[in-house]
Design a protein around this nucleic acid. Structure first.
Length: 400
DNA sequence: CCTCCACCGGAAAGCCGGGTCA
DNA sequence: TGACCCGGCTTTCCGGTGGAGG
């Protein structure tokens, strides 16, 4: 086996790939021009433009389903704005924050700490009273003496988890200081605004932009634009883009998913040493994405969750028989005893089951069995191809 | 039409680990 | 070192409920 690895790497390097530049398919990539969002871009630009004259732009609220180009368009627009501000010497600070990022900006404290950090005032990630962090942020803000635009992406996550306190304070800050702070909120939950305090809502959505889903034709042109950069010439077989777009349009016009599908299809083709991407590769890619997603979610779950899921899987070897919370809990308890694990309350297990439901691993809905009580009816939503692997993961995790 | 089951699910509070600060 | 703070996970408490069976 001498030189085995060297040979392998050598072959790997020289191996033909369908890709030219994979980055063009990644979700962080910002293209030269954004298709089918001309009006939105303009509308956003209109709202933000006053910042160049040192006036405070209106707060802006953006919503639309996932993969409709919200984040992309906002980033694109603010980036251009920052460039102009730079050359025109108009003091302007733009802060982008994703509220969904775990341990980063998903609580009031962490959001404020993050904001203060962006303004050059480092704050310890924990330990201080929240009020202190507000103070730090305010001081940093006043020292800046320039217009500030704060972009809060996935803002619904923040509010769902920790309430609208932070937003309330944030919208009021701009009234209470010299510096001018504008907020751009991005949400993919349209109902989100309803749970806000009315004062916060009206303040936050001085301007509103709604991003509709793309249709199949629009997704096609987006895919073509990116594929041009990402793949070698002739690497795409006829109909591949169309099929990709059709899949994405089928589930609510999610362009991000379409791009991911195309990228993974390319990777599958590479692995098979195929010089072309065919429509079969798309199918394989779709299955792979689905499978990987589920496996990844399960694998990163803590042990108690594994015990619950394992109980459910053991109770249900065949499809179309449904389970109820009570029986799952019974098995879970005995499993805990066998493995020397502390037993959680049924109330807690109930929540864990709901979480699996939200993650799309299970399907749980409350039903009434009349005389025999009210409970959840639970079924499994794991693709067959992933089942064996999942069971493996669960068993490994439980017996440690 | 009423009862009553077997849970649901909200609210609040406790515990614990990670941290700051004086 | 001790007083305090945050956030994640969990327990405790408890009012609520759709509908089969009487």
């Amino acid at each position: 086996m001498e030189g085995g690895l060297e040979t392998f790497f050598g072959v790997f390097l020289r191996k033909n790939s369908v890709f030219l530049d994979k980055r063009a398919l990644q979700s962080t990539y910002i293209p030269e021009n954004i298709l089918h969002r001309e009006e939105h871009t303009q509308q956003i630009a209109n709202t933000l433009a006053p910042a160049l004259k040192g006036e405070k732009p209106s707060n802006l609220f953006v919503y639309g389903k996932t993969g409709t180009g919200k984040t992309l368009t906002i980033k694109y627009t603010t980036q251009k704005l920052a460039e102009v501000a730079e050359t025109e010497n108009a003091p302007l600070k733009i802060i982008y924050i994703n509220c969904k990022l775990k341990r980063s900006a998903d609580t009031e404290y962490r959001l404020m700490a993050q904001l203060a950090g962006e303004l050059g005032k480092m704050v310890p990630p924990t330990g201080l009273p929240t009020g202190e962090v507000y103070g730090a942020f305010l001081r940093a803000l006043n020292r800046q003496k320039r217009n500030c635009i704060i972009i809060l992406d996935e803002i619904d996550q923040l509010v769902n988890k920790t309430g609208d306190n932070a937003l309330y304070n944030l919208t009021r800050i701009s009234e209470a200081t010299e510096s001018q702070v504008s907020i751009i909120g991005i949400s993919n939950d349209i109902m989100f605004a309803d749970i806000l305090d009315p004062r916060v809502r009206s303040s936050l959505s001085e301007e509103e932009v709604v991003f509709p889903p793309y249709n199949a034709l629009q997704i096609q042109s987006i895919l073509k634009q990116r594929a041009e950069l990402a793949f070698k010439k002739e690497a795409l077989e006829l109909g591949v883009i169309e099929k990709c777009a059709a899949y994405a349009a089928r589930d609510h016009g999610d362009a991000r998913r379409a791009l991911e599908l195309l990228r993974v299809a390319g990777e599958v083709a590479d692995r098979e040493n195929s010089s072309k991407i065919t429509t079969e590769h798309i199918d394989k890619a779709e299955a792979k994405i689905d499978r990987d997603r589920v496996i990844d979610i399960v694998a990163t779950q803590p042990k108690q969750y594994h015990l619950v899921l394992y109980s459910i899987l053991s109770l249900k070897p065949n499809k179309n028989s449904n389970l109820f919370t009570g029986e799952i809990y019974e098995l879970y308890k005995s499993l805990c005893n066998k493995t020397n694990t502390s037993i959680l309350t049924q109330r807690r297990i109930s929540d864990i089951i709901s979480e699996f439901d939200m993650l799309g691993i299970l399907n749980a809905r409350v039903i009434s069995k009349g005389r025999y009580g009210r409970t959840r009816e639970i079924s499994i939503e794991i693709p067959d191809t992933a089942l064996a692997k999942i069971k493996q993961i669960l068993e490994d995790s439980i017996h440690t």
